[in-house]
C-alpha cells in the first residue's frame, strides 16, 4: 500500500511542527526518516497513524484519504510510537492477544500469530512475565511485536531499535529489510548507519521542512558535487606523476597527500570522472596503480550540512 503525503501541516500554537511537507512512500520501500530533535518526525508519524488530526493538507493510504470516514486505514498500519507506551500490568501474551483482537485478527489465527511474533521478536525466554517486569529492550520487543501482530501492510516505527542489544539490533534491522520487500515501512532514527543498513530512501526533515529526499547515493552525489579520488601510484617519480595528473583534461586539481606512500587526491571537473584517464595514463607510463578509491561524503556530513543553521 502506498502512502502519499500532500502539503501536510501541523502547528502547536504559533509553532509549525510540520510545515507543508510532501512525500510518497511506495510498497516495497523502507523510508528512513531523519532529522534533529524536534524536527517534526514523530508529529508526522502521529498524523499518518491517525492519532492526531490533519490540520492542513492530506494523507492518502492506498489512494484513500485518511479523512474519508469509509477508509479503515488503521487496520493496515502497525505503529510503534516513540517511548513505546505499554500496559505494564498486563502479561505479554494477554497484551498481544488484546492487540490482535482489536486489529481484527481472526480468533482462530490469534494464537498462531502470537507464537510467531514471540519467535520473531525473541521474546520466548520472557513470555510469561508481565510487561512491567521486563527490561527496556524486552519492552521494545513487545512494542515491535504488537505493531506487527496483524501482519499490516504498512509499518510506522518511531525509533524502533532504541534500547536493543547489538545482536537484537542486527536481527531487527534484517527483519525490517525483509518486511520492507513487500510492505511499506517508515522508520525514524538518530542512528545514521542504521539508515544505510535498512533504508532504500532517506528523508531529512528540519524544523518541519523537508531538506533532503533521495537514496543514500543520490544524497551523497548532491552533497558532494565533483568526484574525488584517492590514488596510490608506484614505480614513478612523484613530481612527474603529479604533473601528468594535473595535465589530464578531466582533472580539476591533483594534490600530493603523502610523499613516502605515493598517495594522491584528485578532484575531477564537474560532472566528469577521471578514473579511466588515470588508468590509461598509468598504463602508458608503466606506473603501477595500487589504489583507487572514490571518497564518499559521509552521511553524518550530509546530515550536519543540511540541519545545522
Amino acid at each position: 500500500m502506498d502512502i502519499q503525503i500532500e502539503n501536510l501541516t501541523k502547528s502547536y500554537g504559533p509553532q509549525k511542527a510540520v510545515n507543508n511537507i510532501n512525500f510518497d512512500v511506495k510498497t516495497g520501500e523502507v523510508l528512513g526518516f531523519l532529522g534533529p530533535n524536534g524536527a517534526g518526525k514523530s508529529t508526522t508519524m502521529k498524523m499518518i497513524t491517525g492519532y492526531i488530526g490533519i490540520e492542513k493538507g492530506d494523507i492518502r493510504i492506498g489512494g484513500k484519504s485518511l479523512t474519508d470516514p469509509e477508509s479503515n486505514f488503521k487496520q493496515h498500519i502497525g505503529y510503534l510510537p516513540e517511548n513505546n507506551p505499554l500496559y505494564l500490568d498486563m502479561p505479554i501474551i494477554d497484551y498481544l492477544e488484546f492487540c490482535a483482537a482489536l486489529q481484527g485478527v481472526e480468533k482462530t489465527k490469534i494464537d498462531d500469530r502470537i507464537k510467531e511474533m514471540i519467535g520473531l521478536c525473541g521474546l520466548n525466554r520472557e513470555k510469561h512475565k508481565k510487561i512491567g517486569e521486563l527490561s527496556k529492550g524486552y519492552r521494545q520487543r513487545v512494542g515491535l511485536a504488537q505493531a506487527m501482530i496483524h501482519d499490516p501492510e504498512i509499518l510506522v516505527l518511531d525509533e524502533p531499535t532504541t534500547g536493543l542489544d547489538p545482536n537484537q539490533i542486527i536481527e531487527i534491522r534484517k527483519l525490517i529489510r525483509d518486511l520492507g520487500k513487500e510492505k511499506t515501512v517508515i522508520l525514524s532514527t538518530h542512528i545514521l548507519p542504521e539508515v544505510e543498513a535498512t533504508c532504500d530512501r532517506i528523508l531529512i526533515i528540519n524544523r518541519g521542512n523537508i531538506v533532503a529526499n533521495g537514496t543514500p547515493e543520490t544524497l551523497r552525489k548532491q552533497a558532494q558535487g565533483n568526484e574525488v579520488l584517492k590514488l596510490r601510484i608506484e614505480d614513478g617519480d612523484v613530481e612527474t606523476i603529479l604533473k601528468s595528473l594535473n595535465a589530464l583534461d578531466t582533472v580539476q586539481e591533483a594534490d600530493l597527500v603523502h610523499r613516502e606512500e605515493n598517495l594522491f587526491e584528485v578532484q575531477s571537473v564537474a560532472q566528469q570522472s577521471s578514473k579511466r584517464n588515470i588508468f590509461n595514463l598509468c598504463v602508458e607510463k608503466k606506473w603501477v596503480l595500487t589504489e583507487l578509491t572514490p571518497l564518499e561524503t559521509k552521511l553524518e556530513d550530509i546530515f550536519r550540512n543540511l540541519t545545522v543553521n
Binding site: 479503515n72 507506551p85 505499554l86 482489536l102 486489529q103
Partner: peptide, 13 residues
C-alpha cells in the same frame, strides 16, 4: 498519562 492512549487509538478503534 502513560501514553498508551496513543497506542490504543491507533489500533483500528
Amino acid at each position: 498519562k502513560t501514553g498508551t492512549l496513543e497506542l490504543l487509538l491507533t489500533k483500528s478503534v
